[in-house]
Design a protein around this nucleic acid. Structure first.
Length: 903
RNA sequence: GCGGAUGUGGCGGAAUUGGUAGACGCGCUAGACUUAGGAUCUAGUUCUUUCGGGAGUGGGGGUUCGAGUCCCUUCAUCCGCACCA
């Protein structure tokens, strides 16, 4: 109620308008039609010009249309694109649709409407909305991930991934036919050789654990499972299920993905999140002999130096050796524990069980550094998915092991004398009553029997010495471990890219030939999933079954690719979007890549950006693209929030039930006083701002300008509804002044106006490069206020200002430009040059401070000698008052800045 | 717990290398025009004051002629990750 009322009133202006009224609706319609008709923003592949590639993260075209968050990033890139074009660059600035996705499929299940029809409708709506904002995209380059002409090449890339292996020595992906099969494997026969090859492919087909919602009969992505283990859509508990899945070996590229982060201009936070996700840690893998067995238990540790402090071992409940390790006597307890751990999902293991739990397996291992017998336990604080799924526990120097050992009264011997000044803490650690993970010098860390002795060494030395000893004695090796895991690359859904894969009745898997692409989706009448966790494609009988020339029968892959697939490479397709011979021309790719500026939401900090970097590196290794990294500069726009209201107890109140009285807020029904808070826009809070409403009420230029004026692009900021009025007033002022013949004169330009104009050209240029749009707009307001006050301007100055305004408020700028007698688009004009000499001053108004406090101001010529300045300032009446005519202690004069007198 | 960021008027936010804190905008106050004003224009607007000043950028301390900015410390909020061995 609060949010809407004003917009609606202003959106129905008096019909009785003067001819000078800023009729934004007419103006914007006129220029949008003009741009469309003249293809103003079409990008030619003119290799003679310097290029600039500015990219938005393309949207998923949802049924609810744009929200105000979309235009934020899009306006920013549009301003940069228009600016760069005016600066003489050949600018690539495309838009498209990431249009595969669940909502269209869900809608299909409910209504039987083909997803392609829903998608088409939504794309049309998005395109209309985006065009209504005056964003200058080259629509001839529009791409859509669901278009067979597009996903043909997504499938083509998948085939490349399948046919690539990673050469760890060269740290480079190579064609699979360059893979040499070792002689001893060759000798075992063709099946072994085949298995060897399959194990090397970047894409492979294998069993994988997935989340399955028995209610929706659908597999869920991890992010669709809530913290309590329920499906976010229906609230039912999801299950673990083993299904054959396509996986991609992204961990092989971990080092390359880490290295590449060093050379890109990205927000530090995003780089850190990616590093964190890859999770590289260095240490050693150590083999422990299991007592009374020829099995060894391998662990990964970052602290091989603490081996002397290892007093027990822990394996995860899913560890493959657990059954063998468990003795008869302990079997019941271990089985019960494993069953119980299985009930807890991986998600709530961390949350619910702050208390450590576990049971003894009944078996012992031998600590390789001193051959001491140590018990092997099973506990769910050790995860199967990380390292080897087993650890050596060093309770005195690892907090988790310390907690566990304390809970189960296991010994906590100290082997590292802490280098801390805290005497009490040090005592505690030495006694095994506290845990120390920092540096220090080793004690009790020598064994005559095995010959290892690190007593007295520091952490760094101890690690090096121990690894060397382990390797010499063949008990372990230096090792690097990564958190990142193989990428589960298939979904049991209809509305995604089909895999170009056939599973034959004899077990062979073949991929389609390039010339058989695209493999299209079959049209279906029903989109319900298959009964056993299969994709709806399992019901497409006609499509599904194939027979080869020899009569062998096969089934097509019924899984489809995840939504990430299309977005992994779309920036490449924009380069050559209608090419039906190859994904893009190499020549064009060399010219346009890399992307110079990529703007989008921080929610894609890890997955999309990591996945697409991975694909890009594979394509680079195969010689398909010319750069190692796809995105040179990345920038995250901050989320736009909205005001919302809550009661004293914190209950949220829908905005249509809120009433304002004298700056306070009340519930319209209960009369409760309410607190104004800032929250994400949501349907339930009824605080969603619809860009269409703003465009209707104030115009697209106002929406663009306001989104940029709101604050720094990367900041999270609330939409303050009244703020739109501020920029609307500004545009109104610009219109009324610059489209009024009576404001123009033919004489010399006023010096002050000229100076401000050049300052504006300079500042706006700098600010656009730095993406500081809010301060650029403020500078344009300052200039406008000045000329309105002066009342007159020359056509030349007005033309320069119009061009500065152009990237921000393109419709109004075109109108002014046209009024000034130009009959080509302002988008094609040159950015005005500023003259540095115009900005020079010959005198400066110095603030004079006495003891650090501003006391008065004085105008002084810049070429005045120091001595004279001193005399002049000290003889000022206010200065005399403070100095009593005495010589000051100090006299500081910073040229062009400030004068400070210390008395 | 770890990692990243942010704290400036009533509000959104400005402030290259330390150099006039609060640009620009909203809101508010007063006035002008007006039948009217949620239109437009003009002036004012950090707080406080005994009208000399005084205080002031989350809190405390430090460096400096001078600190929103640099250093130490502390608090709060937001985001991401979270038993990663």
């Amino acid at each position: 109620m609060l949010n809407k009322s004003k917009i609606q009133l202003i959106s129905h202006p008096d019909t009785d308008v003067e001819h000078m009224e800023y009729k934004f609706a007419n103006i914007e319609k006129r220029w949008q039609d003009y741009w469309e008709k003249n293809k103003t923003f079409r990008t030619e592949d003119d290799f003679s010009k310097p290029k600039f590639y500015v990219l938005d993260m393309f949207p998923y075209p949802s049924g609810s249309g744009l929200h105000v968050g979309h235009p934020e990033g899009y306006t920013a890139t549009d301003i940069v694109a228009r600016y760069k074009r005016m600066k003489g660059f050949n600018v690539l600035h495309p838009m498209g649709w990431d249009a595969f996705g669940l909502p269209a499929e869900q809608y299909a299940i409910e209504t039987g409407t083909q997803p392609s029809i829903t998608t088409q409708k939504n794309c049309d709506n998005f395109r209309r909305q985006i065009k209504s904002l005056g964003l200058g995209y080259d629509w001839d380059r529009e791409v859509n991930t669901t278009d067979p002409g597009y996903f043909k090449w997504t499938q083509w890339i998948f085939i490349r991934l399948y046919n690539t292996w990673f050469d760890e020595n060269l740290q480079k992906g190579r064609p699979i036919d360059e893979l040499e099969i070792p002689a001893e494997i060759e000798a075992e026969g063709s099946e072994a050789a085949n298995n060897f090859i399959e194990d090397k492919r970047l894409a492979y087909y294998d069993d994988a654990q997935v989340w399955w919602c028995p209610n929706c009969k659908i597999v869920c992505a991890n992010e669709e499972v809530m913290n309590d283990g329920n499906h976010e859509k229906c609230g039912n508990t999801v299950e673990r299920k083993n299904l054959k899945q396509w996986m991609l070996r992204i961990p092989l590229y971990a080092e390359r993905l880490l290295d590449g982060l060093g050379n890109v201009d990205w927000p530090e936070g995003v780089k850190d999140m990616q590093r964190n996700w890859i999770g590289r840690s260095t240490g050693a893998e150590v083999d422990f002999q299991v007592e009374g067995s020829d099995e060894t238990l391998r662990v990964f540790t970052t602290r091989p130096d603490t081996l002397f402090g290892a007093t027990y071992m822990v394996v995860s409940p899913e560890h493959p050796l657990l059954e063998k390790l468990t003795t008869e006597e302990e079997k019941n307890r271990v089985d019960a524990y494993v069953a119980q751990a299985g009930l807890k999902s991986e998600l709530d293991r961390s949350d619910l069980s702050k208390e450590k739990s576990g049971v003894f397996t009944g078996t012992y291992a031998l600590n390789p550094v001193n051959n001491k017998q140590i018990p092997i336990w099973v506990a769910d604080y050790v995860l199967m998915g990380y390292g080897t799924g087993a650890i050596m526990a060093v309770p005195c120097h690892d907090t988790r092991d310390f907690e566990f050992a304390t809970a189960f009264s296991l010994p906590i011997p100290c082997i590292l004398d802490p280098n801390t000044d805290d005497k009490e803490l040090r005592e505690q650690v030495l006694k095994g009553k506290a845990c120390w993970t920092g540096d220090g010098s080793y004690v009790n860390s020598a064994s005559k029997e095995t010959g290892l002795d690190i007593n007295g060494q520091s952490k760094e030395q101890g690690i090096a010495t121990t690894i060397k000893w382990l390797e010499e004695n063949k008990l372990g090796t230096e090792a690097i471990n990564y958190k990142i895991r193989d990428w589960l690359f298939s979904r049991q859904r209809y509305w995604g890219e089909p895999f170009p894969v056939i599973h034959w009745e004899d077990g062979e898997i073949t991929l389609l030939e390039d010339d058989a692409l695209p493999l299209q989706l079959p049209e279906m009448e029903k989109y319900e999933p298959g009964s056993h966790g299969e994709s709806p494609l399992a019901n497409a009988e006609q499509w599904l079954h194939v027979t080869d020339s020899k009569g062998r029968k096969g089934r097509r892959e019924t899984n489809t690719m995840p939504q990430w697939a299309g977005s992994c490479w779309y920036y490449l397709r924009y380069i050559d979007p209608r090419n039906d011979q190859e994904p893009f021309s190499g020549e064009k790719e060399k010219y346009w890549m890399p992307v110079d500026l990529y703007i989008g939401g921080a929610e894609h900090a890890v997955l999309h950006l990591l996945y697409s970097r991975f694909w890009h590196k594979v394509l680079f290794d195969l010689g398909i693209v010319s750069t190692d990294e796809p995105y040179t500069r990345l920038f995250n726009q901050g989320m736009i929030l909205a005001f919302a209201y809550e009661t004293e107890t914190g209950a949220k109140v829908s905005s249509d039930l809120v009433e304002e009285k004298e700056g306070k807020y009340f519930h319209t029904e209960t009369r409760e006083p309410l607190k104004q808070i800032v929250a994400k826009m949501s349907k339930s809070l009824k605080n969603v701002v619809n860009p269409d409403d703003v465009v209707t009420g104030f115009g697209a230029d106002s929406l663009r300008l306001y989104e940029m004026f709101l604050g720094p692009l990367d900041a999270v900021k609330p939409w303050v509804e009244n703020g739109v009025k501020g920029v609307y007033n500004f545009l109104n002022k610009v219109y009324k002044f610059f489209v009024d013949p009576s404001k123009y004169h033919d004489g010399e330009e006023d010096q002050e106006v000229l100076k401000s104009l050049h300052a504006t050209i300079k500042k706006v240029g700098f600010d656009v490069e730095a993406l500081h749009f809010n301060t650029a707009i403020s500078q344009m307001m300052i200039f406008t206020n000045l000329v309105v006050k002066k009342g007159k301007i020359t056509r030349e100055s007005a033309a320069a200002f119009a061009r500065v305004l152009g990237p921000f408020a393109p419709h109004l700028a075109e109108e002014v430009w046209n009024f000034l007698g130009n009959n080509t688009s302002i988008a094609k004009a040159d950015w005005p040059e500023y003259d540095e000499s115009m900005l020079k001053e010959d005198s400066h108004e110095y603030p004079v401070m006495i003891n650090g406090k501003l006391r008065f101001k004085i105008m002084l010529p810049l070429d005045m000698a120091d001595e004279e300045i001193r005399k002049e300032v000290l003889s000022h009446e206010t200065a005399l008052k403070w100095t009593n005519g005495n010589d000051p202690k100090r006299f500081i004069h910073v040229p062009k800045k400030i004068i400070n007198i210390v008395v």
